[in-house]
Design a protein around this nucleic acid. Structure first.
Length: 249
DNA sequence: TGCCATGTTAAACT
DNA sequence: GAGTTTAACATGGC
C-alpha cells in the first residue's frame, strides 16, 4: 500500500470530499472522533508516506505502515475492521490497518515539505546536503531516511539503485559528486514514473530490480540481501551496479 | 498453505 | 546514555 506516490493517488481519489463536512465518523482507532464531527475538510495533504486530513483546528495523520489500505464509497468487507471512516454528503472514505494520529500543531512547523520527493517544493540541493552530512551511511539506508527523501520506500530504493547502476552498499562519502546528484534526481524521477505506472495499473510490469531474479542487462542472477542497518530486502546485480570506493576517486 | 512483505515505533538488550 | 536488536502490529499475494 504505502510509498509516496501511492499516497498521492489517495489524495487525488478523495479530492471530492474537500470542502465537505464530516457528517459521521468512527472506527476502532484510539482517538476522540467527536473532534471531527461537523468539521469541514479544509485540505488533504501528503508528506512522504503520510496522508493528512486537514480539518478546522485539527488534523488527522494517517500512516499505512506495511499492510494499510483504504476504500472509497465501498461497502465494508466484513473481514476487515475499519480503523477510521469519514462520511460526507457525497460519499464515505474508509481506512484499514493503519496508524492514526491527531495532530493539533501547525503543519508548517512540523513538516519540511522540501524533503518530500513528491512535493513541488522538493529541494534536491537540500537533500544532497543532508546526504553529504552522513558520509559513512550506505546508500541503501540513506534512501530510506524519511528526513532526507520522504516518500521513498523499498521498491523505489531498489529501482533507483538499479537504474543508476549503483551498488547498494556504497557509502555516501565514496560517491562522486555527479553520482550523488544523479541519485537524488532519480529518486524523484522514478517516484513520478511509479505514480504514472501505478495509476495505469502496470507498476509491476516496469520493475527492473524489485522482486526480480535476473539482471536484464547481463542475465546474471541478482543478489538478494538484507542490506545495511535497515536490513531491508535488496536485489542488485554485482556485475552492473558499481560499488564506489576511495580508489575509484 | 505457509511464507513473506511497499513500514515504523518502542521496548529490551549490550 | 548511545547504539543495536527484537517484537509488535496484522493483511494479502503468491
Amino acid at each position: 500500500m504505502p510509498e509516496g506516490p501511492t499516497i498521492v493517488i489517495l489524495k487525488e481519489a478523495v479530492s471530492k470530499f474537500k470542502g465537505k463536512k464530516v457528517l459521521e465518523c468512527g472506527g476502532n482507532a484510539a482517538i476522540d472522533f467527536s473532534l471531527f464531527e461537523n468539521k469541514t475538510v479544509k485540505d488533504f495533504k501528503t508528506w512522504g508516506k503520510h496522508f493528512i486530513i486537514c480539518l478546522k483546528s485539527t488534523n488527522i495523520r494517517i500512516h499505512f505502515l506495511l499492510f494499510g489500505s483504504y476504500s472509497i464509497d465501498e461497502k465494508i468487507k466484513p473481514t476487515r475492521s475499519v480503523r477510521l471512516f469519514l462520511k460526507f454528503k457525497n460519499g464515505t472514505v474508509y481506512f484499514y490497518t493503519c496508524s492514526i494520529k491527531v495532530i493539533d500543531q501547525d503543519l508548517e512547523k512540523i513538516y519540511d515539505w522540501t524533503a518530500d520527493v513528491m512535493n513541488k517544493e522538493f529541494d534536491p540541493a537540500k537533500a544532497r546536503k543532508k546526504l553529504r552530512a552522513k558520509p559513512g551511511t550506505l546508500v541503501c539506508d540513506a534512501l530510506l531516511d524519511q528526513e532526507i527523501l520522504a516518500g521513498v520506500g523499498n521498491i523505489i530504493k531498489n529501482e533507483v539503485l538499479y537504474r543508476i547502476r549503483l551498488h547498494p552498499e556504497t557509502t555516501i562519502g565514496n560517491l562522486p559528486a555527479r553520482k550523488l546528484t544523479e541519485l537524488v534526481k532519480e529518486c524523484r524521477d522514478y517516484s513520478f514514473e511509479f505514480l504514472r505506472w501505478k495509476k495505469a495499473n502496470e507498476l509491476k510490469k516496469h520493475w527492473l530490480a524489485y522482486s526480480k531474479k535476473v539482471c536484464s542487462r547481463c542475465n546474471l542472477p541478482f543478489i538478494k540481501k538484507y542490506c545495511g542497518k535497515t536490513k531491508r530486502r535488496t536485489l542488485f546485480c554485482e556485475n552492473c551496479q558499481i560499488r564506489y570506493s576511495k580508489a575509484t576517486h
